[in-house]
Simulated scan of single mutants.
Amino acid sequence: MRHALVALFAVLMPAAAPAADLTEPRCHAEVPCTLGARSYHVKEPDGWDGVSPLPVLLHFHGWMRQGTLIVKHGRISGATRRRGVLLLAPNGEGKTWDFWTDQTNDVAFAAAVIEDAARRYPIDRSRIYVSGYSYGAAMAWRYACENGDAVAALLAVSGTLPQSETCPEAPAEVRHVHGTSDMVMDFPFGPDGETTWPVRLWRARMGCDGPGTRAGAWSVTEHDRFERTTWACDEGRIALDVHARGHFIPRGWIARQLDELLSLPPSYP
């Protein structure tokens, strides 16, 4: 599926521009990597030896943002660069994402970003993580829905697709965090105020459509406290973290998910 999406994006893109002047700075951090008419940003982890395969976090920015913010964001880039993870931050057209239906070019573009990065870096394809915040979280859900077989984990913050959607693919693992007071991307309460509804789509798709296991409260910092529910599914695992606040990226949440996924000692930041 991934290669078909990349081929589709290549067809949709205009002809490549002439080779860049070799005196131009290498694309990294705030200097974008061009990909046809579009672009993305990349941030290497601290202390990388230049040869070891790198886990990847593909992160979709929020509405009216760009990848330049992501590669400087302490709660995103700060987490990846301390944990040996290569951060990829694609730029949405018009500073937003088309996640509303499966008829979107953005899935193919994001798949092409990973392939382009793989030509520049030795990426570990068994550890490709996809994340996003707000509209970017909905886009991360859309990517996992359409191209999830290549995704080791979805890390979504405060944004979903409608729980009635049907996804042809799914990631190996889903981790989602959402605040019950969120009024930007409203918390999707279920019947009678059920708070496990934000991952209802994945519970059905991955074969774990039950009440789940209450793992109890946990926190990374004193600012936010989460109630975690987990599911062991026929086709993977799901973890839902619910907090009582609004629309934001909780301190240390992405970092803690990466620690757990990479079997690292929990740390902050």
Rank of each mutant, 00 (worst) to 15 (best):
G132D: 06
P198Q: 11
Y143F: 14
G212C: 06
P168W: 00
R119T: 15
R245M: 10
D224M: 10
I128K: 05
E30C: 00
G216E: 10
P90D: 11
V130R: 04
P198L: 09
L69S: 10
R75C: 05
A150N: 04
T80C: 08
Q257N: 14
A108Q: 02
Y135M: 14
D21F: 06
T196I: 12
R82Q: 13
S267K: 10
L12C: 07
H178R: 04
P250H: 03
A29W: 00
Q66N: 15
L58I: 05
A117N: 08
A172W: 00
M1Q: 13
M1L: 14
P14L: 09
C145G: 08
R175I: 02
R82L: 14
G252I: 02
I249L: 10
D98L: 07
H3Y: 07
R203S: 08
A111E: 10
A152V: 01
Q163I: 02
H28N: 11
E24W: 03
G50S: 11
A108C: 03
A117H: 05
A239P: 01
E222K: 14
L262Q: 11
G47A: 09
G252P: 01
M64Q: 13
V107M: 04
D259L: 04
L88H: 08
E44T: 15
Y129H: 08
T166V: 15
P162S: 13
L87M: 08
V51S: 15
V51C: 03
F248K: 13
L201I: 09
L262G: 09
A111N: 07
G210P: 01
A138D: 04
A244R: 08
A15E: 11
S77P: 00
G50W: 07
A15V: 07
P18V: 12
I128Y: 02
L264A: 15
R205Q: 14
H176P: 03
V184N: 13
P171W: 00
T160C: 07
H28E: 15
W141R: 04
Y40S: 06
A140W: 00
P198E: 11
V157C: 11
G62Y: 01
F109Q: 12
S131L: 04
A110I: 01
L155P: 08
F187R: 02
P14D: 10
S267P: 05
P211F: 03
A16S: 05
T160S: 12
A117Q: 09
A16C: 02
W202H: 08
T213H: 09
R228A: 13
P25N: 08
E24S: 15
D98G: 11
C167G: 07
G193E: 13
G78A: 10
M13C: 09
D49W: 06
V71F: 02
T23V: 03
A7D: 15
A138L: 01
P265H: 11
R203G: 07
S219R: 15
F226V: 11
R125C: 05
R142Y: 03
I238S: 09
P171F: 00
L12S: 10
S267L: 03
W202Y: 09
R38Y: 02
D234H: 08
M13H: 01
V42I: 14
E146S: 06
A217Q: 15
